[in-house]
Structure formats: C-alpha cells, structure tokens
Amino acid sequence: MPAPPTTQSGPNGRHAPASAPPQAVWFAMPDISGAALPPLHSVTARPVAQDRWERLVSEVTVPHPVDEVWTALTDPKALGKWLAKPNGRWAKAGKESILDFEDGEFFLCGAETVTAPSGGRAGTLRYLWRWVGIGPATSVTWEVRDRGPGATTVMVTEEAVNPPSDWRSWNGMGWPGILEQLAAYLRSGTDNRWTWRRMGPYLQAELPIPAFEAWEALTNPGAVKHWLQRSAGSLTVGDTMTVVMGDASGTVRVTVTKSVDAAQEFPSYMPYIEFTLARPSWSEELGGRLWIEPAGLGRSLLQVFHHSWEGLRIAEPLPERRLLTNFWVLAFRRAQSMFGPPAGAPMGPHGWST
C-alpha cells in the first residue's frame, strides 16, 4: 500500500504536499530608525532649584524692664551706643534707613513691622537689610518680651536664602556678641560699640549668572580693565596691577599671590584669588581675597575680603577703610552691570558720568 504523501507547512499555515512546488515567503523589514530603541542616554535631566534657606536665632534675658529695652532697640541715639549709628528714619515702618558703622561699612535697612510692647504683648521690630547696600537681602526680627518684674527676654532671628557658604560663621553662629553688647549698654548706659575692626571691608554682590561663567567673564583682561579700573598690569600671579581708586584717592597696587581655577582645590572646587593691596601712604601691604560661589539656580555671589589692618600701622585707619569700601562698592556695581542693565546711571570712570 503506497505511503501517504509527506506534507509541509505553507506560508498561510495550511499543509501542502511535499511534492508541491515551493512558494515565496515575505518578511516585514524591522524598524531600525531608532524610534523603537532610543539611545541609552537619551533622557536629559535638568536642575530646577538649588536653594539654601538658613535661620539663626539668638536669645538673652536682661534684668531691665521691657520698655527700657524697647527704647534701646528703637531710639536712634541709644542704638548708636551698642550697635551702629542709624539715621532718623530708623524703626519706622515703610521707611528706609542706614545703620552706619562709621568705618565705610553699613546696612541699608527697610523696616516692615514696628510694634511696641503693650499689655503683655511682645514688641516686634522686623526689617530687611543689605550689607553696604548691595549684598543679598536678609530678614531680621527682634522680639522683646516682658518676663516679669524688671526682666525682659530679647530674641533676634535672621533668615536668609542662598547666603554665602560661611554665613553662619560670619554671624558667630547667631548674634550672641550683639546681644551681649545690648546687655552691657543697658547696665552701664555707656558706649559699648567697637570703633573699627582689623578685618574688612567684606563685600558681596549677587550676579544673575552661574558662578563659573561669571568668573570666566570677570577675570578676562578686558573685563578687569572695566570693572576694576585697571590702568596697568594683570591678574597673573606675581604681576603688579595698578588700580584707580578714584579722582581724590589716587591708585593702589594689587599683586596676586595665589590664583586657583575652577575644579582645582578641595573642598569647594570654586575659583578664587588671593592678593595684597598697597597704597603709597602705607608702610605695609593689606591682605585680600576675591572669590565667587553659587547662590541659587543660575546665580552667583561675588565676594571680596581684606584682613591684617593692624599690620599697616596707620594712625587714622577709618578714612582709609572708607576709601577702600567705597572703591569695592563701585567696582562690584560695575561687575553687576556686565550681566544686565545697572540699577542706576551707567558706570563710567567717574561715579557721576552718564
């Protein structure tokens, strides 16, 4: 008996006799355009916020009635004996005032809340302030609370968003020294404020640009000529750069002693310059440091600091400090103007030029 014919599966799934002629088989071409399989690193993330919020709270209880403490805080004449010399608009809601340390450095203040203590309610003084008028704004809140017969608790709170990285240490981890000066004034009634410091001026200026990009732009030789008013020399280590301080104050000599680029030094990996500054009337040189750091997303904080005033042996240091502080204020304003329209008149060789 003959065997049944062998079959094979056709393209349509039916069985065809093995002896049947072969049929064409069609295949769909695979999608190799990349849409079906994106590259491994095809997703890009981006930062949307880089904020730091910091708060410092300090407190002291003094053996003085609450009204006396409130007067020491809000009366301009009294405040000038333990903190700084204010003008007549101090502690007036909606008004601006200056807290002047009389060495060139000051706070620009804008009072928001002024509520005197009354009937068991605490007194509150809240204001915003900027160091030398151009630093980042922070908020300060004083609370003066009656603690019984002849005793008052004073609490001061300062809050900042994206402050300098060493903001806490600059403030002594709070305001204990300031509150102790207040307590000393309340007890003695005499002036307990320092006359001048061996450190400073210390300035900060916010820039609307990331730190590395800002530093590259500011240290460019052409930019240095503009914002630092360079007349000769450079920021090269060992070179002496002559800088014009102003019509009435002459020039200073800036010599860079150390220059660190980005990503070179642990722990911050941020760029900075250390330098000395000399004036013809000084017997020695003043130390200085210029640096930058991030201050939130897409922003940065340019800073400069001086130290070792005691080594200059100057009979009257305050006029020199005022000149130097004013020089850096104008220089930082010129630096800010490089990245956007200036807040005031255009900055030329003279502060009043237009």
Rank of each mutant, 00 (worst) to 15 (best):
W170R: 15
D261Y: 04
D103I: 05
V156H: 07
I98M: 12
W309R: 13
A223V: 10
N12R: 13
A49H: 04
V260C: 04
R55N: 06
P39I: 01
S268V: 13
P346H: 00
L99K: 02
I178G: 04
V60A: 09
L312D: 03
V69Y: 01
R147W: 10
Q229H: 12
R14M: 12
F107L: 13
R253C: 10
A137T: 07
W215I: 05
P163F: 05
R197E: 13
A72I: 03
L56T: 01
S300Q: 00
P341V: 13
P63W: 09
I178C: 03
V57S: 06
V48L: 09
P63G: 11
L330I: 03
L79R: 15
E316T: 10
L290E: 00
E206R: 14
S281P: 08
L56R: 01
A295R: 12
D146M: 01
I314E: 08
S19Q: 14
A137I: 08
E68V: 04
G177R: 06
K258C: 06
G189A: 01
Q303N: 15
R126S: 04
A223Q: 04
T236P: 05
L182E: 02
W167A: 05
A93D: 02
K225R: 15
L108K: 11
W82R: 01
W215T: 09
R187L: 03
T141P: 14
R253W: 10
W170N: 15
V48D: 06
I134M: 12
Q336K: 03
S231D: 10
G10P: 14
G200C: 01
T219H: 03
M241K: 03
L277H: 08
S97M: 02
R130F: 09
V132I: 14
R299S: 12
Q204R: 02
P63D: 11
V224R: 07
F106E: 07
A232V: 00
A45Q: 08
T61G: 00
S9I: 15
L56F: 07
P30H: 01
P210T: 04
P149Y: 07
W90C: 02
T257K: 06
A111G: 12
A84W: 08
Q229R: 14
F101W: 02
S249W: 04
T138P: 03
A91K: 03
E206C: 02
T152V: 01
P21D: 05
S169M: 10
S9M: 09
G135V: 04
V224D: 02
P38V: 02
G340D: 00
I273E: 02
P38I: 01
D67W: 00
D51Y: 07
S165C: 13
R333T: 08
F107R: 06
M1H: 04
R168V: 14
W142L: 12
Y185C: 03
E285L: 13
G34L: 11
L302S: 02
T157R: 00
G177I: 05
